[in-house]
Each structure stands twice: as structure tokens, then as C-alpha cells.
Design a binder for these strands. Structure first.
Lengths: 151, 151
DNA sequence: CCTTTAAATTTACATCTGTCACCTTTCAAC
DNA sequence: GTTGAAAGGTGACAGATGTAAATTTAAAGG
């Protein structure tokens, strides 16, 4: 599965992708109805988004006769990972930990998820540093306190 | 500290915020130079962004005589949390776990971060469900496989 | 074949974003 | 006071986004 790092998927396009990913494959009518339900979008809106997604290479159109079939080209897992990476890449490295903590606290996770995370953490603990450096500003600035970042 | 949920902070504005958060407080000159270093932006660009941030209520201008001082109004922690929440809110709940796993694998975390995460997980395990339901489409659709979501 | 009608494609357009150049006000030194 | 360099503020503009109307095309029934 290709990932979606190259061409950016926007917020509303993302909603469409979610539907497509979940449906696995769909006809434009099905998709339009779903989007109308979920977002209250007009037919046109969904069509436009679908086309943009096709142009971006995120969705494929297949079939020869009219009710074409659309299916995802980029993977959901890959796209989600890319989105998450993108987010954290723009945040202070020093605070990634507590941000992740916040996410974990507020999301629903399955027993399996938790087990996996714990395994990863245990492994990571073996080589984790005592402190993560702030990567917000070049040299001359180095964050001191975790609580109040700068100042 | 107020959070930044109301007024959205865009990508480039975020870069400015990072600098301001780290510096704690700054004069426009300092900020402009920093942004020029980090992003290669022209003076104007930083000024514009700084102003937009002020209008959005994310940064405060203080002082009476000319070299004014700017400082953050919205907190870094809060803003990061909001951004993360925002991201995960748009993703399939069923896949949040593995996405978090991916993030943890690729980020640098301190021993303390890891310990905190483990504590949270242990606590969470007590009440975690066996399976998390997909929340992408209304009723009629329910994801079966974790590996290949729909289809 | 012709018509109807769903599907597909184009065009539209207001806003938001990223980036700036340029104009205006001050402070500070003559 | 006058002036010139900073600091501060405005206007601009191309491209991205969200949202949708209008137009074209083709499948299906008569």
C-alpha cells in the first residue's frame, strides 16, 4: 500500500477517505449518500472531493461501464501514520511524551492495543535517554523546565 | 492557560508559536531573526503571522514604548493536546491504538515519559474493552478485520 | 433510435493560507 | 526640531480548501 505523504489529503478529503476505507470499495452514489448522511454535504461536494482524491492518486476509479467503482489506493494505516508523524514533527520533541500521554488517556484502546503499547514501551525503556532535548530553536536556546517550557 | 481550540492556529503560525513558547517572551526583532534562521522567512512574513496570532488571541503584545514585548497567551501543552485530539478525532477509533504505537516507536521519549505512559496504560487496562468499534460510518457498516478495515 | 435520468466532469467562488512588499509611526541622535 | 533607521501596520496576491451549481455524457427503457 502506498502512503499519502506525497500528495496531502485535506480535512474534508480525509472524511471521504474514511468512508471509502471502511466501505472498502464503493460506487459514487453510495459514497454520496454516505457523505450526505455523515456531513450533510450536497452531491456535488462529494463528487468534487472524490475527484480531487483521484487526481491526488489516493483513490482509483475502475470498471468500464457507467456505475464506476471507486476504491482506495493509499492505505488507511499508512495515511494515519503519516498524519500523526506530520503532527508530531511540528511539535516540540520535548513535549511529545506528555502529548502522547494525553492522547492515550482520552482514547478508547482495546486490551490488545494496550498490550502492544506496553511491549513497545518496555523495549524502548532499555535505550531511552534521561531527558529529551527541545528542538524548537537552534543552539542558543535550550529549554529548561518541562512544566513551563521556555521562561 | 487558555487553549487554542477556538481559533485555529495554522501550520506556519504554529512555527511562530513554537519559537515564542520556547523564548517565553520576545521582541519582534528577536522573533523575526529567529524565524529567518529557522524558516528563511522575510521580516514581513513573521510580522504578518505574529499579527494574525495576536488577532486570534494566541499572543499578547505588552509594553508602552516601542520595542514591544510579545508573549504567548495560549499554552503550548494545551495547544499540543488540542492538535492531537483534533487529529485523532478525525481518524477511525479502531485504529487509534496502532497509530499511537507507530508514534511511540518513532519518537524519542525520556525514561520519565515512558514510566508515565506505562502507568497510564496499566490503569487503563483495568477497564479496557476487548475490541474498539469503528466509528467511521453509521450503523449499517461495522468493520470486521483490524488488518484490512473494511472489505 | 430518442428520451430520461443517473453518473461524471467542469466551472465557480468565497475563504483561508503562505509569503511579501510597501507605507507609517516612533525613538533617538544630531 | 529634523531626520533616518527600527518597529509596527496594511494591502496584496497566488494557490489551497470547502462547498456547490451547471453542464456534459452515457446507460436503460420505450
Amino acid at each position: 500500500m502506498k502512503d499519502a505523504k506525497n500528495e496531502t489529503i485535506t480535512d474534508s478529503e480525509w472524511e471521504v477517505m474514511r468512508a471509502i476505507w471502511t466501505m472498502g470499495q464503493t460506487t459514487s452514489r453510495e459514497l454520496i449518500d454516505a457523505m450526505n448522511q455523515l456531513q450533510g454535504w450536497s452531491d456535488s461536494t462529494t463528487k468534487t472531493l472524490l475527484h480531487r482524491l483521484i487526481n491526488k492518486g489516493a483513490v482509483a476509479q475502475s470498471g468500464t461501464s457507467r456505475p464506476f467503482v471507486f476504491k482506495p489506493i493509499v492505505g488507511e494505516k499508512e495515511s494515519m501514520a503519516a498524519a500523526a508523524t506530520d503532527l508530531f514533527d511540528h511539535m516540540c520533541a520535548m513535549r511529545a511524551g506528555s502529548t502522547i500521554a494525553g492522547v492515550i488517556k482520552t482514547r478508547e484502546l482495546s486490551q490488545a492495543d494496550i498490550a502492544e503499547l506496553q511491549a513497545i514501551l518496555t523495549e524502548k525503556a532499555k535505550t531511552a535517554p534521561e531527558q529529551v532535548q527541545c528542538n524548537c530553536l537552534p543552539g542558543h536556546h535550550m529549554c529548561e523546565e518541562v512544566e513551563e517550557h521556555g521562561q
